[in-house]
């Protein structure tokens, strides 16, 4: 256990008190209008100045960015932060390469990546890969080659696999078992989701991501046997529909990170707080989008994810 994180964990424990509970989120979901929700949210940790719902969305984006920056500042291991931001770098890389063939693709780059999108763009355009961090260099090089040879779909599959491989390898390298197990859960849920939403022409072997607890051979059995095996590992999963599968897998991830509550030192509470905040922002966004699209309160409440507090 790393005892250097006493300050960081103390700070996080104080911040956790400001996380929104499920009952509070259900209460604001029951609020009649967006104005009422805005008012309720304003009374919480999201007390920044905003008036319209559009500003509320940007407030959520800023909150996510501030949380990543805070965790980055608190983490003493320099390799951990890029690891937590990797999926945003991958998202930016995909977007950049898509833009290469279609200029009309909206440049909705994520500001959460460890590598700035402009630097990444310059590196790709000039083939000057030395400008980007070494862990990302090979991925970027291979991506361009694959994109030119096989197209965007293969590139996306390649990048998803590379991202999970890198995250698992790095978390093993830094001996962060909490993070490694968390990534394994995510890989399993992604594989399960991909398997049950597989199109007729798609080959599961190609999209299967290695590294999770569920091996590829499990998915080659009969459906009943597959479900039995999945329930053996993840009894709380609901496999009936895509939406319930997504919700139940998110709930299991939140339940997993709750283990960090017993740690008084180490990186675990920081990582858990980051993902707890991500979950909270997802829930608020879900309520706002539900209200904007006139979705019923009961449906919104059903879809609310489990919360950390």
């Amino acid at each position: 256990m790393n005892h250097n994180y006493a300050y960081a964990v103390g700070k996080i424990r104080a911040l956790e008190k400001r996380l929104l509970s499920k009952s509070f989120l259900e209460k604001i979901a029951e609020s009649g209008s967006l104005e009422a929700i805005t008012q309720d949210i304003r009374e919480t940790a999201y007390s920044g100045e905003f008036a319209e719902e559009r500003e509320l969305f940007s407030l959520l984006r800023n909150e996510r960015k501030a949380t990543y920056n805070l965790i980055e500042k608190l983490l003493e291991e320099p390799s951990l932060s890029p690891l937590l931001r990797l999926r945003y770098d991958i998202h930016n890389l995909k977007l950049l390469l898509k833009k290469e063939i279609d200029r009309s693709v909206s440049a909705d780059f994520s500001p959460l990546g460890a590598i700035s999108p402009s630097l990444l763009e310059k590196a790709i355009q000039n083939k000057a890969f030395l400008q980007i961090p070494s862990y990302f260099r090979e991925i970027a090089k291979k991506s361009i080659a694959l994109f030119q040879a096989e197209g965007i779909k293969q590139l996306e599959q390649f990048l998803d696999k590379e991202m999970w491989k890198l995250t698992l390898d790095e978390s093993k390298e830094i001996k962060n078992i909490f993070l490694e197990e968390f990534f394994k859960l995510q890989i399993d849920f992604l594989n399960i989701r991909n398997f049950f939403s597989l199109g007729e022409k798609e080959n599961f072997d190609v999209i299967f991501i290695v590294g999770g607890r569920l091996e590829k051979k499990i998915f080659k059995k009969e459906r009943a046997a597959i479900e039995k095996k999945i329930f053996f590992f993840y009894s709380g999963l609901e496999l009936d529909e895509t939406s319930s599968l997504e919700k139940s897998s998110d709930d299991l991830l939140i339940n997993y990170i709750k283990k960090a509550k017993i740690y008084s030192f180490g990186t675990e509470p920081l990582i858990a707080y980051l993902f707890a905040k991500e979950g909270e922002l997802k829930n608020i966004k879900l309520i706002l989008l539900g209200k904007l699209n006139n979705i019923g309160v009961s449906v919104i409440k059903e879809n609310l994810r489990e919360t950390y507090v």
């Binding site: 005892h3 006493a6 300050y7 964990v9 103390g10 700070k11 104080a14 911040l15 008190k17």
Partner: peptide, 18 residues
């Protein structure tokens, strides 16, 4: 005291009333 003091400072950085 070093451990406890660091943890307390972490809390106080967000909530000085504690």
């Amino acid at each position: 005291i070093g451990y406890a003091g660091q943890a307390a400072n972490g809390v106080l950085s967000e909530d000085p009333e504690k």
